[in-house]
């Protein structure tokens, strides 16, 4: 059984880039990481202090929390290959 991949996405309310990022991440995970991912979405409009504490400035920002190594990708995640590469995951085809 492969480990669950924990991801956290920081977004800024309904701003276009954030909406796109949520959609892109959903598609990416469904297609490449079926049943082995967990996504948490943090809206910095609602939880600015938390974002600040986590050191998040620019949005959208995707964090891979586990398994290690931790890493992050900024942007609306419109380049799935680049995102998967950065997260250290290979597309499941």
């Amino acid at each position: 059984m492969e480990a669950i991949i924990k991801l956290r996405l920081y977004v800024a309310g309904n701003s276009p880039n954030s909406v796109k990022a949520i959609a892109n991440l959903g598609v990416l995970c469904r297609e490449n990481l079926p049943d082995r991912h967990h996504i948490e979405i943090v809206d910095v409009f609602r939880e600015p202090k938390r974002a600040l504490a986590d050191g998040i400035i620019l949005t959208p920002m995707l964090l891979k929390l586990s398994p290690s190594p931790a890493c992050q990708v900024m942007g609306d995640l419109s380049h799935p290959t680049l995102v998967l590469q950065t997260l250290g995951l290979s597309p499941s085809t």
Binding site: S15, S18, G55, L58, L77
Partner: peptide
Amino acid sequence: FLDAHVRSDLVIAGGFDFAGMLAI
């Protein structure tokens, strides 16, 4: 002081904006 320094190894995949930063 807000460290908004963008690390050089940060991967950018697509568009981003200041909306989150400004909210913070």
